[in-house]
């Protein structure tokens, strides 16, 4: 699948934003992050800023942006529509939560938990868009939803740790951050293991129905240059680059933030802030690379008509 930058930026930024929003919505009402209105302002602006930037970026993927509002109508059948509804609906409790916290000095448990629920629901809907697509077996499997949720939570948590460090606040319970990173890394490695080993769901033989006559090979394509189908669905990445990019994503996105998450145990003040900043940036870049690979490594069934033997 063509790795469209607008969609990759959207899922990365809004994933981190919703992760942060969910954590704030759950932790703040229980006093696990500072009740300081300034902390609330900075953390919520970061969360809602990332979410909004992501959502705006997703509009650039559309051919007719001015009609985007129509996408809220088909929530009964479409995960993309549900995602849109959940994304917009989440702004309401998130906004009330923020107004209460920042301007009225009250951290609302109901608004916080509803905002967290909306955040998780939105990321869940995003992941289900991919999970539900049967023609892309590398998306249509049980690893995709846990990956989106865990990676969103991990990147949100890395940004929360940074804000906590900047405010010199009491850190989260010791093992929380490394554990969240380890969980996300295990799920990502599990996903890669799965897609590398999964048997083909469709072949050129089943796509043409000619498999019973022997091996099906493309003799002549229908057109001489690339068309929409090949540009959008026929993107292929060299195996050696995929392997290298997986290592880069693993080291940048998970390995280094994991190690940096132990810095607060041995140092505080500026070194801890610097470590948290570096971890948040690296983690987000790592997720970006991982998300690029999620698209680039996905194979669409239509490529079976254009010479691929199996997907």
């Amino acid at each position: 699948m063509h790795p469209s930058l607008s969609v990759i930026f959207f899922t990365t930024a809004s994933g981190a934003g919703y992760g942060l929003l969910a954590l704030l919505g759950v932790l703040a009402p229980f006093g696990m992050v500072p009740a300081d209105p300034l902390f609330g302002l900075v953390a919520l602006v970061l969360a809602l800023g990332a979410i909004t930037a992501g959502l705006v970026s997703s509009l650039f993927h559309l051919g007719q942006r001015q009609r985007a509002w129509r996408a809220f109508s088909q929530w009964r059948s479409s995960w993309l529509s549900r995602e849109g509804v959940a994304a917009v609906a989440t702004y309401l409790p998130a906004g009330l939560f923020g107004i209460g916290w920042v301007f009225l000095g009250t951290v609302s448990k109901a608004a916080g938990l509803l905002a967290a629920l909306g955040a998780v629901a939105t990321v869940f809907c995003t992941s289900m868009i991919y999970r539900s697509l049967k023609p892309v077996p590398r998306w249509h499997n049980r690893w995709v939803v846990p990956n989106y949720l865990a990676l969103g939570l991990m990147s949100g948590l890395l940004w929360l740790v940074l804000v906590l460090q900047i405010f010199g606040a009491r850190p989260l319970p010791a093992a929380t951050v490394p554990a969240a990173i380890a969980l996300a890394a295990v799920l990502k490695l599990g996903y890669w293991r799965f897609i590398d080993a999964a048997p083909a769901t469709s072949t050129a033989g089943s796509a043409t129905g000619l498999g019973s006559f022997g091996t099906v090979r493309l003799l002549e394509a229908p057109h001489t240059s690339e068309n929409y189908l090949l540009k959008e669905m026929g993107f292929s990445i060299a195996r050696k680059h995929a392997a290298k990019l997986r290592r880069i994503a693993m080291v940048l996105g998970f390995g280094l933030p994991f190690m940096l998450s132990f810095v607060p145990f041995v140092a505080s003040g500026w070194p801890a802030i610097a470590a948290a900043l570096l971890a948040a940036i690296l983690g987000t870049v790592g997720v970006f690379v991982e998300r690029w690979l999620f698209f680039a490594e996905a194979r669409h069934a239509v490529t079976l008509y254009y010479g691929r033997s199996e997907v």
Partner: peptide
């Protein structure tokens, strides 16, 4: 007149039946 050109339908079709019109911005 209702299509926003999100291209998701073309992703959902294993048969490559849908082609996006870059010029019109619709499927």
């Amino acid at each position: 007149d209702l299509c926003i050109g999100c291209k998701l339908c073309s992703w959902a079709c294993p048969y490559g039946a849908r082609e996006f019109d870059e010029d019109a911005g619709v499927m």
